[in-house]
Design a protein around this nucleic acid. Structure first.
Lengths: 190, 190
DNA sequence: CTGAAACGTTGTCATATGACAACATTTGCT
DNA sequence: AGCAAATGTTGTCATATGACAACGTTTCAG
């Protein structure tokens, strides 16, 4: 039963007790998605949060030249959504896609924010999550501006090695801001 | 009296009423800093928030090659600090510097979070600020990965034109992830 | 199982940008 | 005001990376 994984996660990462964690988790609904299934579409206003029980999701957008740019990947035991659209309530430029067949726990935005109001440790968790999302984004700006390709690759090897084992080269390249052929050549050099 | 500007800001940007805004603002202390004065130093654990009454601050770090990478600039009527260090309570890799002679309102972190506990609209404001800091960082990742130099320059012209009027080229270049000579040549091309 | 489509690798070539240097201009200190 | 230091501009040259193409490999639908 996949609510258990979420309940467990909440007990570990918030001060919610067992019962409260179960209550919060029960507001989420399990869904399964296929590989390459699009979960949130470009142009829509995003209205859901997703907890990943199993699998891997990718958030990306398409730039002017038609190339994909990946914002981030999320794996088991983390939350993800097209957060910019969800917060601003504007049509999303982001696309959320399942990179592997995945089992998710979904909740709509209204229910989610009801939970943050009803359970203050859950609100705290949400706010901390935003803080760390910001820190991660900041770190990436620092790490990728001014690094050349080989250094970016080494950086990922050190900080997010799972990307190189579970994620397709094409998607990793779009995360590093280079073409797949360049990434391929850099890997050969290492 | 510079508390007025902060009080005003709070009244406009939170649901605090006049009296509450004055109370919150009065917990901040006015300071003046000279151009190029370092406000938060690399290696220190950052313990303050700064509201900019007048002037302009820059947050940057030094990469392995010894080059500066600018995270962001903040102008009048905004908050800034070495937020990563402040949140994680680890020594800062960031340096916070006054890019112009500036008048700031300072508050230490403990007092700041006391305010967020005592005034829930202020807490809400802080959380919204984090959300938008994240969105800005995300937008920058999208905008700068995969854009070439000339497109980055156009992007700044459109989205943050103040950078080109008030900020030195060197600092702008370090924000765009290019050298100052490249930026200079690109500006000539435009 | 089989064929088509997507993906990954490797090559060539063109080009944007970094490194460095010379010089002009601006800023800041006394 | 006047000198020294920092910043900005422009040139040359070297190089990393993108664009494109050819080809092999993997994935996936029927």
């Amino acid at each position: 039963m996949s609510t258990l994984s979420l309940q467990n996660f909440l007990q570990k990462n918030t001060t919610l007790d067992e019962e409260e964690s179960a209550e919060v988790a029960s507001a989420f609904k399990p869904i399964k998605v296929r590989r390459n299934e699009i979960i949130e579409r470009e142009g829509n206003i995003c209205g859901h949060f997703y907890f990943i029980h199993k699998g891997c999701l990718r958030l990306y957008e398409i730039d002017k030249k038609g190339n994909e740019i990946t914002a981030y990947f999320a794996f088991e035991n983390s939350f993800i959504t097209a957060i910019t659209s969800l917060i601003t309530q504007k049509p999303s430029r982001d696309i959320l896609i399942a990179h592997e067949p995945s089992e998710l726990m979904v909740i709509d935005k209204v229910s989610f924010f009801n939970l943050t109001e009803r359970y203050s440790p859950f609100k705290l968790f949400y706010n901390k999550m935003m803080e760390f999302a910001f820190i991660h984004a900041q770190m990436r700006i620092y790490s990728f501006l001014g690094m050349d390709g080989i250094d970016k690759l080494k950086w990922v090897l050190e900080h997010e090695p799972m990307l190189l084992t579970r994620i397709s080269s094409k998607a990793v390249a779009s995360y590093l801001g280079m073409t797949n052929s360049t990434l391929s050549k850099l890997k050969a050099k290492l």
